[in-house]
Each structure stands twice: as structure tokens, then as C-alpha cells.
Design a protein around this nucleic acid. Structure first.
Lengths: 409, 409
DNA sequence: GCACTTAGTTCACGCCTTGAAAGAAGTGGG
DNA sequence: CCCACTTCTTTCAAGGCGTGAACTAAGTGC
């Protein structure tokens, strides 16, 4: 990761290009005045910078709005079709590849059902490569017009500097995924944890949008979080609590699939919920094999089935404690609860969840916090992954070459 | 908080001045070549910038070193006496005020015994003001030569934008400490949590020095942490987990003085340790009134007193779990354990503590982590507080006016 | 149609960094 | 003792950049 090159007078222009682009990206089409105000530069400079960007074709005029008795603002925007990005979601049961334009509209989609635990990493790489080829073919987009491929994976991602994936739960031990992908594609790559990327998507486009300090909690089979704190807005990389699901909330408590005991995931993860229900019912129940379906159905009858109600209440208690912990540590102004299971819990028991969190949080940080359900579905992992090359592109000031980024030496 | 003003060509010079100063500050006296390499600018520019700084008197020549058959490097350094800073530690039992030069050598010290819980905030403000006057008088330093006053306090500090302190444990509820101080002094102020500042001191000068990702744990009466992650080096503000001591490690566990249950502090804080010992002994024991002395003596006889051994073992178990949680979440390369109690535990049971942490951490992040005892004593809170105005000064490129910072409008 | 308002553009000016060339200050061999 | 060589620092012309002011553009309302 090269440090910010703002020492030279040339880097200055790049910085101002980047600011203009981020402004247009995050706040939508706007006038040159707004860009100037947001970036803290004079209107003269904005004219110059925007002129450059229009010449390059990245930015285009898009109408004008009246301005109360004066010359109307002419509105500029990023051309959505200037370039494209690919987002990949390597999930436990499928690999999803999506192609987006710069407005993050889906231009192509390709899903490959798979069982991650039974696949060698090399096979996953092949699926990704095939998926990328498929979405490009579908949409007729040329490889040269793709800025890069973002990939979301389960587990812990170590950047050293190429991404290496450690995902004990699916049997990936130090898989050099980025290096493997580099052998099979020339496109710039960016790999990160799927939960973090879903959080990123919520932060850019969903319920976490616009909040200064926000925590996104993702609850499904596993449990993860993304933290965005002041100052680390669009300009800085996001903060990265990796494996929050495996923090102890009951020292020496329930055994967890990670090998430790008392992890939060061992109380609120889908597997834990299903298992606890079986215990309450005195044995494994009949029902669908698929964990997601089973848990969904189970929770849906919480109003009629006492065991289900108990399971849900316990889930709320522990998840609330976990959220309380996050609030104490980060003092966010907003907490967003996502993931297929998290969204269901939010639907069914939001008030109870807030109360449980309040019980475990200090009054001061908690009284300012908003607890919300996530806007975006689970598919948004691919969207979040796609934000990675977009972010690089914008921060580079819209220079394609600069996006290349993490190539092996 | 003004956002980085690197848009103008003027701010560029400021940025390069700042880089040169940070380099000299963190790496000590050095050649212009080193500065250029570190800051990524040409030697010509370094000459210019350093020339400016020398003219200003901030930087001075300090000898030269041979360079293997060529012109020797001339070494420059920051003049330690160019300006001074004050660090204040508002502790539960005393207010400590220290005056430092730019080399962070103590030039004056003034400690006022106090009982924070019985004092009105206004009285504390008077003590701080008196302490500042005292250290200035002691050392003969003029007020004009003081860059600012950093203040470390217990509890949660909210910057909105002036610092407001919430410390339930000492009865401070939304105390506008910075505003109160502004009424009594013209010096620039910076207020933050004491544990964070101690972590900052360890990061700049102690056992955490030089580590890319590091977590500093502070264990005393209470429990806090400072997190420093990649990218948030000296350039970015530190990450700020406020009240990590009040995260639940046993949902619905021991009641804590914060009102919740099962907080980590309720298991490893000094009060908890003493109370647990009393329970094991079947009632309040004889002994010194002062909690610090009592706990220190108690732990010292862990080899002969079974109750003491049990208490220490439990403390290690819970603290280890907490450290494991931190490792999972932040993947630090180093964990530093400080605070008067933390340092004792590190002394007595480091291997056991590491084992307990390993039990609760995922293998991948844990295998790379170093667990160390803090270098600096508890006095370092004042040192850490003093880094705040220093940091502002350096980041501003050594412009005194820019340090003023957070004045009321 | 004219004064007024607001948005965007142009341009002289000053400041900045660079890269090359020159200068300074040593070492070591002949 | 001198001269070639190395290494570090300074100087300087060239080119780029943002600013602020003047100016142009494009509306509104009386």
C-alpha cells in the first residue's frame, strides 16, 4: 500500500481529482460549486479539474437546476458506463459473480452452486474465473473496461501484501487466494472478508449510509462486524474487526466450532440456534436439511411454539449483550443488523434486542445510538466486494493504471 | 477538526514540513537524506524545508556522521528547547501536572493529592490551573513557549467538538471539562481518556514502539485499551475503543460498578480481585485501606497463600480471555500489558496468561502475536497527555498558531 | 429592457517540487 | 601532497498548480 503521495505538486492535482470524484460518487450528480465546497478548493480549480475529467470521458454534463434568480447550476455526474467492476461472493453454498457499472447497477450475474467445504481452493479459483468470463460475455463488456475484481470470502484475510485466507470453518488454511487468482487473470484484484464487505455495502448504499460512526453486525451461519469510525470515511480504509463472532461472551462457556469456548457465535450463530432448539425438544427434530430454511421456519413459529420462543429469547439476550459490547467500545451513532438471520431477528424482536443491548451498555454511549435493520440482502456481499476496485479508482483520481495496485513484485 | 488541507499548493509545504518534523521526532536526529527518503521528496526540497525550519529556530544542526568515503552527513534535530508542553493526569487519587520539552524530558512536576470522587469538577479545574502555573514557575518557562496542555481523565470523553467527560465511576456526568478549562487558561487544550493516553505513550516511547498493529491493555482499578492499527501511525489519530473494560465476558455474570453484569472489569479490576479474595477467605480481611497496596501485597504471596493463588489464577483466566478477544478482533502483532495491576500480572504469570489467551483466540491471528509487559509506569499518563499538543504541533508543520485548534467559536 | 443574482471561466501571480548540475567535504591511492 | 572518487547538500531553471479577481454566461423579477 503506497502511502498518500501528496508531497509533489502533481499529486496535488490527483488529490483534487479524487475529491471531486468521491463527492460525485457519494453525493450523486451535482454542481461544480458543491464540489468546490466539499473539497475545499476554489471554483476556478474545480472548473479545471472537472474539465480534465470531462475530457477524459469519466465525467459528463447531465442537465441543470435553477438556482433562485441566477444562472442555473450545471450538473455533472460520473458516466456510469465509463468503466465496470466485478464483485465476487465466495459463500459457503455458492459462488456469486456480478458485474456492475460505476453507478453500481448490475450488468451481469452468474451464480455457481457449490459446497465450499468440499472444494479445493484451486477449483474455487476456476469457478471465479469462469464466472467473470460469463458475466463479461453476458453483458458484452470488454475486459479492458473492467477496473478490477473484488472478492469476498469467509474467514480471516491477511494482506501480506497479497491476500491470504484463513477460514478454519471451511477448511481453508493459509490459502494464497490472491496469488492463485493472479495466475489466472490479468485483472486487478482485491480480496477481503465477506462480512466486512457486506458492511461496506451497507455503509455506502444501505442503512448505515451517512452515519459518522457506525457498526454493521452481520449474523448468519457465522457472525461478523464492520466498523466505520469518524475520519475513516470514504477516504480511509475501513476499520477491520475480523472475527468478532469468536470473542468470548461466556468464559469457559459453550464449545464453538472454532475450537474455543464461549464464543458469541456459539450462542447466536445459526448452528447454535438450531442445536439449542433440538436440545429443548429433546432430540433432533424433523425438518429441512438446509440450516437457513430450518432456522427461518423455527423462528417464524416463536409465537406458538414455546421452545422456539425460548430459543429466540436466548438469542436476543446474547446478541443484545454483544451489541452492548460494541456500543461501549466504539460509541457508534448507529448499529445496523444484517445477515439473513440478523434481519429476521430485527424483524421479530427489535425492541427486546434494544433492551438487551441497553442492559449491557453504559448509559452514555447507548443513549445516542440508533439500532436498525440492514437494507440490503445477502447478495450485497458481491456489491460490497465491487466497491473495492471502485474505491481504489476514485482515490487514484480516476486513473486506470493506478488501480492495478497489488501486483506481485 | 479541520480536514487535511492539502488541496492548496501552500498546504503542500506544510505537509512536507510536517513530514520532516515527524521523521525527526520519531526516528531522532538524522540527515537530510533520511528525511527525504522517509517523506518521499527530493533532496532539494528537503534542503528548502529544513532551511526554513532552521531559520525559524525549530530545527538545529547537531554534528555530522561519516559516510564511507564521501562527504559526511550533517545531522539535524528538533531543538528540544524550542517549545514546551504540559501533560496532566487526572487520576482517582491525585492530579499530576508535568512540563516537558520537545524531547519529552521532564522540566517540571507538580502532584496534588486529591480524591476525585469527592471533588467538584470546578475544583479539579482549579487544581490543574494551579499545577500548570506551578510547573512553569519551577522551570522558568514562559507561558508563550507552551504549545498546549494535554489532559488525561478517567471515563469516556466525547468530542463535540469540545471535550465532555462522562465518568460514572467518579460521579462525573457530562462534565464540559474543556470549556471549563478554557475559561481559566488561554493555552490550547486537548482532553482524552487516560488509558488511551497511556497507550499512546507506550506506542511512542515504550514497549509498543515501532509495532505496526498493536494493542495496549491497561489494567488498574479499571480496564482500558488503546488500539493502533496500520495506517493510523503518527499521522492519523489513534483508534479509540473507549470502555473495553465494560464489555461482557460472562453474560448475566458478576454485577459491575457500571451497573451492568458480567463486565470484564468485574473479574479482573482491582476491586474485583480484592473482593474475590475476601470471599475466598470468608470475610473482609485485615489490611491496608489503599486498594493498590492491598492488591499488590495480596498477589505477592500467591506462592504461599492458596486463596491468593486462586484469585490470581482466575484473574489470569479472565484477562487471558479478554486478550484473546482483542487478538481475534484486531490481529495485532503485539499486545502490551500495562497499568499497575497489569504489570504485576505480567511479572508473575506471563506464560499462564499467554496460554489463557491462546485458549480463547483463533490460531491464525494468535500465532503471530507477541505479549509484552509495558515499559512505562503509571506516570506515563501525563507523558501521553503531553503527546497530544506535540502531535498537533508536528502535524501542523511546526506552526504555533495552528496548534490552537479547539477553541470555542 | 434593465438591474440584480448566481454559476462558471479565464488569467496573471506567486508558490511549490523536481531533476540536473554544481558545490562541499570527506577518503584513499600514488 | 595531490588528485580521482564518493557521498551529501545546495542552487537553479523549468514546469505545474491553486488562488483570487475580473469577466462572461444565464437566469429572475420589476
Amino acid at each position: 500500500m503506497g502511502s498518500r503521495q501528496t508531497s509533489t505538486v502533481h499529486g496535488l492535482r490527483r488529490e483534487n481529482r479524487a475529491r471531486a470524484l468521491w463527492d460525485l460518487y457519494l453525493h450523486g450528480p451535482g454542481s461544480r460549486q458543491r464540489i468546490g465546497a466539499g473539497a475545499g478548493v476554489s471554483t476556478g480549480t474545480v472548473s479545471n479539474v472537472v474539465g480534465d475529467l470531462m475530457e477524459q470521458g469519466l465525467v459528463q454534463e447531465s442537465g441543470s437546476v435553477p438556482s433562485g434568480g441566477g444562472r442555473p447550476s450545471s450538473i455533472v455526474q460520473i458516466d456510469p458506463g465509463y468503466a465496470f467492476v466485478v464483485g465476487v461472493d465466495v459463500g459457503e453454498s455458492s459462488v456469486l459473480v456480478e458485474l456492475f457499472d460505476l453507478a453500481m447497477q448490475v450488468r451481469g450475474r452468474h451464480r455457481i452452486p457449490t459446497e465450499l467445504t468440499r472444494l479445493a481452493p484451486a477449483e474455487v479459483v476456476e469457478q471465479i474465473v469462469a464466472g467473470v468470463a460469463a458475466v463479461l460475455a453476458q453483458s458484452g463488456v470488454a475486459t479492458d473496461d473492467v477496473l478490477g475484481v473484488g472478492v469476498g470470502v469467509p474467514g480471516l484475510v491477511e494482506h501480506s501484501p497479497l491476500a491470504v485466507v484463513h477460514a478454519q470453518t471451511v477448511g481453508w488454511d493459509a490459502v494464497p487466494l490472491e496469488a492463485l487468482l493472479h495466475e489466472r487473470t490479468a485483472l486487478p484484484l482485491a480480496v477481503d472478508n465477506g462480512a466486512k464487505l457486506l458492511g461496506q455495502a451497507e455503509h455506502w448504499f444501505g442503512a448505515a449510509r451517512g452515519a459518522a460512526d457506525v457498526v454493521v453486525v452481520l449474523l448468519g451461519h457465522g457472525l461478523g462486524t464492520s466498523i466505520f469510525t469518524r475520519g475513516s470515511g470514504a477516504w480511509a480504509p475501513m476499520s477491520s474487526p475480523g472475527e468478532w463472532g469468536h470473542t468470548a461472551v461466556v468464559v469457559d462457556g459453550q464449545p464453538c466450532r472454532c475450537g474455543a469456548r464461549g464464543c458469541l457465535e456459539a450462542y447466536v450463530g445459526a448452528g447454535a440456534v438450531a442445536a439449542r432448539y433440538d436440545v429443548l425438544r429433546g432430540g433432533p427434530a424433523e425438518g429441512p436439511d438446509d440450516l437457513e430454511t430450518r432456522v427461518t421456519e423455527l423462528l417464524a413459529r416463536a409465537d406458538s411454539d414455546p421452545a422456539s420462543a425460548t430459543v429466540l429469547a436466548e438469542l436476543v439476550r446474547y446478541l443484545g449483550a454483544g451489541i452492548g459490547n460494541l456500543v461501549n467500545v466504539y460509541s457508534p451513532s448507529r448499529v445496523v443488523l444484517g445477515g439473513w438471520l440478523g434481519r429476521q431477528v430485527a424483524e421479530l424482536r427489535m425492541p427486546e434486542l434494544a433492551a438487551a443491548a441497553a442492559q449491557n451498555a453504559l448509559r452514555t454511549p447507548f443513549e445516542d445510538v440508533e439500532l436498525l435493520r440492514a437494507d440490503l440482502g445477502a447478495d450485497a456481499v458481491a456489491l460490497g466486494a465491487a466497491t473495492l476496485p471502485v474505491g481504489r479508482f476514485l482515490s487514484s483520481g480516476g486513473q486506470r493504471d493506478a488501480v492495478l495496485g497489488s501486483r506481485p513484485a
